[in-house]
Design a protein around this nucleic acid. Structure first.
Lengths: 330, 330
DNA sequence: CTGAAAGCGCTTACAG
DNA sequence: CTGAAAGCGCTTACAG
């Protein structure tokens, strides 16, 4: 590959001059226009592309961010990743993707890796399923860290999240407003704060109403498990509404209800969470709480950049709103 | 951050010795065990992590791969990304993700970026929607390049793909075997070879049968458009089977059929392509052609590494098989 | 077995 | 305005 020395030679100048012409320094160093033009011509000629890694070495910043996701095939994370990627691009940052597959050992490896690669920051999504030890380890790496989704512990880590309690409350409230009297919550694993928050919002909404007692159906978060649990449950008296903690669970619920010959929304209204791209295409179309994925990504990127610059940042909490579709209409 | 010099100082040796102890050279340089131990202790003490970027500078390889995807929120690409990431990790490579959103200008930017970052290779997925010019541009960057999915042109670029023609043929054949006599193809945009290949497999299967004439329903690839087109179509006499070029189109088809009060699979059998994670959870469960995403990723990574090492590689074509579920059962 | 030195490809004071 | 030189953090011949 062609280096700055090649360009310097061809333009008949020193490498310092080449650097000055080609590098957009904040305080632009004066260069004679004619010289600059010669340099630019040579660079163009040689198809010279300055090495970002050599630059990174001297600048002590790489312009790279590490994004840790548990599972890219869970439709929620591509939404996040998409938002992060978009925000990163407009901030001239690149995103290194790390798929932990829920494996703590992999997380450890990735944290080490990102540290070795000297990324400017680390974005940890799905962090609510991690143990406190995992989070401490990630934080102890010294790499600027921002969590996407509320942390499980008060680890004093900056995070960006939606208000899961409020959003779950709103979703449940909608079912109440529909006149439903037995509203169940299809819950995700209680090891995740996100899921606990959603369950809490659900409970709070019911309590304020004072009429019905909460019916929480626990799952491990996978649609398969949710389907089985729900099928079992539907042997008895079904609820007349279900608030699912994620759309994956909601889709499983729609399947279970369908297979049990229970009609949605007539017999049971259903609302999910995440508003995955396919939600609107399901039949009945799935009502769901939409997370502002792009906003989350943007906020996370800005925050981690701030942290990297040594500033103290406050957590950011965005609001998520229910999108009502056929599955939760009168 | 702590550097090799810090470790050397603390261990009372030169940085060369530290490097020899800590760097897994293929031809291990002899170091006195006691010295090595001192170095290791110092490194541990200081929590030293060698800079991958400094290493990269001297090794002239970064251990990074660029993965270009058109759209992460299309469920197909996370499957690919997942496979690539997994394969990359076992090869000790990191993946830089680039989301082009179907924008050629962004592609150009990303190619430049990946070149500047001196990635060891570039994986281009969704390339069948690119113009010949786009591909040439990417190839001309000089970065080792492998396409995921068959290229639109004979650009002599290595690629890994499934056999779309054969897979589409198999899917169509299944519908024929079901005894369906009017099988339509819900096609993706003809600007993508992938889509053309699937249409071709469909046509071939019908032709071999000799009975029915092909019915191709064109779409721009988005489920929204597919839904509209199909609703329109369903005003008239519906086909009795639909082979959709992607699962997103198939999901749109299920919705359109549902809304037109056409029953699946009784009146119309449906089979899609990609086997997205949610396919099995739809009702009726969506039959679909499953792509070996992990294998595709693995093959792509191995190939691009070979290319980077200067070897000539042959294209790899994997087979994809239909997974039959309720939507395409008798 | 160990170290001094050159070099990977850049940027940026420091002189001129 | 331009260049020689130091330095970013490593690895690796080259001497000893």
């Amino acid at each position: 590959v062609v280096t700055i020395a090649d360009v310097a030679r061809q333009a008949g100048v020193s490498i310092a001059t080449v650097s000055r012409v080609l590098s957009p320094a904040p305080d632009p160093h004066p260069v004679k226009p004619a010289t600059a033009e010669r340099v630019r011509a040579a660079a163009r000629d040689l198809r010279f592309e300055p090495s970002a890694i050599a630059r990174g070495l001297v600048a002590r910043r790489t312009g790279m961010l590490g994004l840790v996701v548990p599972d890219l095939t869970d439709p929620h994370y591509p939404q996040i990743a998409s938002g992060v990627e978009q925000a990163a691009r407009s901030a001239d940052l690149s995103v290194l993707i790390c798929n932990t597959l829920g494996d703590t050992a992999l997380l450890t490896d990735y944290v080490r890796l990102l540290r070795a690669r000297r990324v400017d920051g680390m974005l940890l999504s799905g962090g609510s399923s991690l143990t406190e030890r995992d989070l401490r380890l990630a934080a102890a790496s010294g790499v600027p860290l921002v969590l996407i989704g509320r942390p499980a512990f008060d680890a004093r880590l900056p995070y960006v999240s939606i208000d899961n309690v409020a959003a779950a409350h709103a979703a449940t409230q909608h079912l109440i407003d529909l006149g439903r009297t037995c509203i169940a919550h299809l819950a995700g694993p209680s090891s995740q704060t996100t899921m606990l928050d959603r369950a809490r919002g659900y409970r709070t909404a019911l309590r304020q109403r004072g009429l019905m007692s909460p019916v929480v159906i626990d799952t491990d978060g996978t649609p398969e498990h949710a389907y089985d649990v729900l099928r079992e449950r539907l042997q008895g008296e079904p609820p007349d509404a279900i608030f699912a903690a994620t759309d994956r669970l909601a889709v499983a619920a729609l399947a279970a209800l369908h297979d049990a010959r229970v009609r949605v929304p007539r017999d049971v209204a259903v609302i999910g969470f995440d508003d995955i791209p396919l939600a609107a295409l399901l039949r009945p179309a799935l009502a769901s709480v939409a997370q502002p994925a792009v906003e989350l990504g943007r906020a996370a990127v800005h925050m981690v950049v701030s942290v990297a610059e040594g500033r103290v940042v406050e957590p950011v909490v965005l609001t998520a709103v229910p999108v009502i579709r056929a599955s939760a209409r009168p």
